[in-house]
Design a protein around this nucleic acid. Sequence first.
DNA 1: TGTACATCAGTGAACGCGCGTTCACTGATGTAC
DNA 2: TGTACATCAGTGAACGCGCGTTCACTGATGTAC
Lengths: 204, 204
Amino acid sequence: VVNKGSDLPEALLEAVDEALRSSGPSALSLRDVARRAGVSHAAPAHHFGSKTGLLTAFAVRGYHRLGDSVLEEIDAAAPADGPATLAAVGRGYVRFAVREPACFDVMFRIDSLDADAPELVEATDQTYRMLVDTIERCRLEGYLQGHDPVLVAVAAWSIVHGLATLWISGWLEGRAGGAGPQELAAQVSELFVAAVLQPMSSAG
Amino acid sequence: VVNKGSDLPEALLEAVDEALRSSGPSALSLRDVARRAGVSHAAPAHHFGSKTGLLTAFAVRGYHRLGDSVLEEIDAAAPADGPATLAAVGRGYVRFAVREPACFDVMFRIDSLDADAPELVEATDQTYRMLVDTIERCRLEGYLQGHDPVLVAVAAWSIVHGLATLWISGWLEGRAGGAGPQELAAQVSELFVAAVLQPMSSAG
DNA sequence: TGTACATCAGTGAACGCGCGTTCACTGATGTAC
DNA sequence: TGTACATCAGTGAACGCGCGTTCACTGATGTAC
């Protein structure tokens, strides 16, 4: 009624975000989402089929935004080489997670999603590829030493993902010397890159 | 009726584990837990007060077991120095997470727990202290270089926590070159330790 | 311009369900004298 | 040994609730002729 021009599916996804923020992922219900969007509680099913369908669509959107956040950070940092790019990827990853904790959480709750949905598979692959490509660039530039690129990718993903989830969970607050998440992300990314990705000339 | 000698609280915690394994954390209900333990659905409330109380007790037990897993790995590896100990901590952490994914998951779902419960706070502190103490040992032994111990602790925790959660979520399977979680844990821990914790003599 | 038809977004009532919590209770166990 | 009392683990019925899904429907929009 209010926004005649907008489409309901998008409004529903917005409502999901709102509901997650205010009540947490475990309390999310179709009816609450519909209520927030100002439509009948049967409307979401009409567009997304089921609760799982709605959450899956929401997660797909989340992966796209995660990718955007990473690209923005790369753009802003204008990194000169692979390692600097990888650090930017890490910062962009954590920044998204911290800004959209509810969304980030849902994106990794596989048991609440339709893990086989093609759009979801494509979205996750696309995100992962950003990381892999950056590490490949490091390799080409000679920063990888003897390290297995796959292992470096797993380690790099793990360290920023772990930082993000630990922060969101609240366990890091008060244990990280008072630093904020973005600051920690920058420091941890820098530590990882400096320690693991040495230029060829300076290592044995 | 069946096990007259055992105590119901412990049996209920076992039932929580069973329920989590079979239905996932979001589907966990007091009634299901009681059903599995073979008692009336009001019995859990009698011992744990509420669903939150039950889950909090379960999480506390989980932290103790996580600590045990870490200690076992240290014992088994008989590490000679701080860095080797830290690698063992990492392996023990991931091993627990992978063996008890449901429990590990609940331990970090703060919104399902009573985060202020003294036993929980103590249990988490105790676990974190194992990590901090190990890094302090590295520092005393001269492996830390100029690195901030707090930052190294956050990074170390992040990398193994991220690896554990990514594996449990299923996103790593098929993206890690076919390696299993324990193998990845060993490799990632080794990579981190070798890259970050250099002996004094070999670095500038 | 007018008619007939098809499409489709969204409605609202109804369904059956399992949930967490409450509460008066039963019945076993232990204890004081 | 016997009596009276207190404690406490666990019961089972009842409560009110919000949930996801289904389904016949309304009513607007577009299209063909």
